[in-house]
């Protein structure tokens, strides 16, 4: 278990016979109570393919059912069922040609982090940029790791100023910001947008307005009931 932010932890899982995954995919987690009662939710995979452990980063939803157990109760050695990997569309593979633009809102960073890590691990030469929107610096997942990629990571904070060492803004995502981050639509990047529904709706709308082909804009949305 690794504490990422006041609301999120990364669980490092030892999964027997894990078949491997592509960056961007998720898993279904099923918890079983002593009396047989079960509950299932989906969580994005944070780790890159090819690593021995499977990592899930889980944000606690206060009135959720599964995330409070995963973030507050679970201890090393505990067991639960896991199914996957799931989802074959919101994925990036190092064999894909062309630049990559990742746009994350809050904990929507998780599947995009798997892409960033895979890009790094494979030594991909693809031009990759990440724009992360968060409320405050303390909400930013993987902060120290992201600092190592500061050349390609852009941070916008909606409730405070980002520290001066970051490429950053203090406002909601807009067209100028996406233009500054690049790569532009004329470079035909593969675009991946993940975050809460209003964020994804707005980011995808702006990207299409800027000339990106709708078919190149992959989206993954989650709402408060994702818990």
């Amino acid at each position: 278990m690794q504490v990422e932010t006041p609301h999120a932890k990364t669980l490092v899982l030892d999964v027997p016979d894990w078949p491997g995954h592509l960056p961007g995919q998720h898993v279904d987690v099923r918890l079983t109570a002593e009396d047989g009662y079960q509950s299932e939710r989906s969580y994005s995979i944070a780790s890159a393919p090819g690593t021995t452990d499977l990592e899930l980063t889980v944000e606690r939803i206060d009135d959720g059912e599964v995330s409070p157990w995963l973030t507050e109760e679970a201890q090393p050695g505990d067991q639960f069922e896991l199914r996957g990997p799931v989802g074959g569309y919101f994925v990036w593979d190092a064999s894909l040609e062309g630049p990559v633009l990742l746009v994350a809102g809050g904990s929507g960073l998780v599947p995009l982090m798997a892409i960033l890590r895979h890009h790094e691990n494979t030594g991909s030469g693809a031009d990759l940029r990440l724009l992360l929107s968060a409320r405050m610096l303390e909400d930013v997942l993987y902060r120290s790791e992201l600092e190592r990629y500061r050349d390609v990571v852009h941070l916008t904070l909606t409730r405070e100023q980002p520290p001066p060492e970051w490429n950053g803004w203090s406002r909601r995502i807009d067209a100028d910001m996406l233009r500054d981050v690049g790569p532009g639509a004329d470079q035909h990047p593969h675009v991946y947008v993940c975050g809460p529904t209003p964020f994804v709706e707005e980011a995808a709308r702006l990207l299409v307005e800027l000339g990106h082909l709708p078919a190149a804009v992959h989206t993954e949305r989650f709402g408060p009931s994702g818990g």
Partner: peptide, 8 residues
Amino acid sequence: PISRGFRG
């Protein structure tokens, strides 16, 4: 497997 302490 029982997820220890999970009640839901």
